[in-house]
Amino acid sequence: MAVRFTRVDFTAYPVDAGRRGQLHQGFCQSGPLDLYAFSLANLLCGQQGATAIEFIGGLGVEFTAPAVVSVTGPAAEITLDNQLHQSWQSIQVNAGQQLIVAPARIGSKHYLAIQGGFEFPRVVGSASMVKREQLGGLHNDGKPLKAGDEVVVASVASAQKLPDALPAQLIPDYQPDARVGLVPGYQHDWLSPLQWQRLLNSEYTITPQVDRMGYRLSGPAIELPSRALYSEAIALGAMQIPPDGQPIVMMADRQTLGGYPKAGTIARCDLNHFAQGIPGDKITFYQLDADDARAKWLLMQAAIQRWLSF
């Protein structure tokens, strides 16, 4: 079967689990900005890591055959042939029906998954599109989807019981102003105690300079000593401090190497909330030990597994 995209208000592109283990070859990790929403969208369709659509702005999809889909992300109006549906649940669709998603906030990221997964060209083991590197996408040229595009869906081997709607306690409470955990980073000791406390006790604003590569923040400048630093690998969520003292948080399509000092890394358990921020949103940070950050992430995964086991 195939689906036809009838509406793409802003941008839409394929993502999967990303290009793992390829940073040393110069390929960015890529993959979803909101890993939690992406993963749950797939689980609601009875699968893990299948290629889904990450989109910003309104999206319309028409189906050529019966299918099971899910939509995850912050608040949005979802209609199937003008009938309202909820996000964070499995949705049965029939041939000829049209699904329309209208996000409540332009700039938020949503995910459309379909049972079987969308078929896109794979480059270095991943179907995730990277516009900057002209990789992936429907024609493997790094271009986002547009209205009129048709995408093939992988066949499903056999019928299977799908999870019910996600329980309320597992649905993230996305807020415009997020408080996120910051794990001390590679060059944390470059910051004086005063500068570290300034970073933790100040409010930062997400600037318009945001994309899948990184989010620039604006707020009290963080002062660092002038030292030479060799370029080194950059972790997902790493907070770089450039000479102007305004933090930059590196996201899924970040470059593989960077030469700015890293004050810390946003904890994986909070990264989805940060990723859903749009320009103008306020961000505050709290210090989180690496072991505590890992424990919080594992507890989140354990809660998902308990739901799946029922």
Rank of each mutant, 00 (worst) to 15 (best):
M129Q: 06
I106M: 15
P144H: 15
Q83F: 11
E77R: 13
S30P: 00
Q29P: 00
V249R: 04
P176V: 12
G137M: 13
L84H: 10
K143S: 10
S128E: 07
S30I: 11
K296I: 13
K296H: 13
K131T: 01
G214E: 02
T64I: 09
Q195M: 13
H85F: 13
V152D: 06
L43C: 07
A267D: 00
Q92M: 15
Q115E: 13
Q47T: 11
F5K: 06
T11N: 13
L145E: 00
A157M: 08
N82E: 15
R122L: 10
I266W: 01
G46C: 12
M239E: 01
A52Y: 03
I234P: 01
R306E: 15
L182I: 15
I78W: 02
D81A: 10
Q276E: 15
W297C: 05
N201F: 10
H24N: 10
V151H: 01
L135H: 03
Y174T: 06
L99E: 02
V183D: 00
A168R: 09
Q47P: 02
G58H: 04
L191Y: 07
P144A: 13
T256V: 15
T284F: 05
D34Q: 14
D244I: 06
A293V: 08
L200R: 10
R294E: 15
A302L: 14
L43H: 04
F5E: 04
P144M: 14
P66V: 14
T284S: 12
T6V: 14
F10C: 08
D16M: 07
A2I: 11
A67C: 03
P208Y: 12
L271I: 07
S155H: 11
Q287A: 10
P103Y: 05
Q187F: 09
Y36S: 03
H273M: 15
S108L: 03
N201C: 06
L43K: 13
P193G: 07
R227T: 06
G280Q: 07
Q209T: 11
L40F: 01
P14R: 13
P176F: 07
L224C: 05
P247H: 12
L224H: 06
L299P: 00
G57C: 12
A113M: 09
A252F: 02
L308R: 12
G73A: 02
I241M: 11
M239D: 01
Q287R: 14
L298Y: 08
M1K: 07
G57W: 06
V249Y: 05
K161E: 08
C45Y: 05
P103R: 13
T205K: 10
I106S: 12
V249L: 13
L80K: 03
L59Y: 04
A178W: 04
G117Y: 07
D253C: 02
Q115L: 12
L288D: 00
L298P: 02
A154L: 05
